[in-house]
């Protein structure tokens, strides 16, 4: 249950980026949540409005994309989406895989609009 801390980190990152775009307001934050990240997307959505008042993200929406776990096999070269609890290469069975996606929680994008369009 560290989703509230993640919401705060999200807002800090977004505000830093927003500083490069004067005259714009945040409409939405795009977030990628990995299958192995330990982060629960529903909790993130639920908690975000509680973390955002009095910040530039007040009223902004979260757009969450779930990122399944993906591995790249260092033996046969196969890249594949896998279940979080079955990370070996589905093609050759090797445990010599690199986890290439699904491990993190990332801020991937911001949707901004001109201040004039804000009600």
């Amino acid at each position: 249950m560290h989703e509230l801390a993640l919401c705060r980190a999200l807002i800090t990152s977004a505000e830093r980026e927003l500083a490069n775009h004067p005259g714009r307001q945040l409409r939405a934050l795009q977030v990628s949540v990995g299958a192995l990240s330990g982060c629960e997307p529903d909790l993130l959505t639920h908690l975000f409005p509680h973390a955002s008042p009095d910040t530039s993200a007040a009223g902004a929406k979260l757009e969450i994309t779930f990122q399944p776990a993906r591995v790249r096999c260092t033996r046969c070269g196969q890249e594949a989406e896998v279940a979080p609890n079955a990370l070996c290469c589905p093609a050759c069975g090797s445990p010599a895989v690199q986890l290439i996606a699904g491990d993190g929680v990332l801020l991937t994008g911001l949707i901004l609009r001109e201040d004039a369009h804000v009600q």
């Binding site: 993640l6 980190a9 999200l10 800090t12 990152s13 977004a14 980026e17 775009h21 714009r24 409409r27 977030v31 993190g104 929680v105 990332l106 801020l107 991937t108 994008g109 911001l110 949707i111 901004l112 609009r113 001109e114 004039a116 369009h117």
Partner: peptide
């Protein structure tokens, strides 16, 4: 796919970065 008055900014930042 954003309306003309909106801009999509690509970012990539781990929330565990700090």
């Amino acid at each position: 796919e954003a309306p003309s008055h909106e801009t999509v900014i690509a970012v990539r930042e781990s929330l565990f970065g700090a």
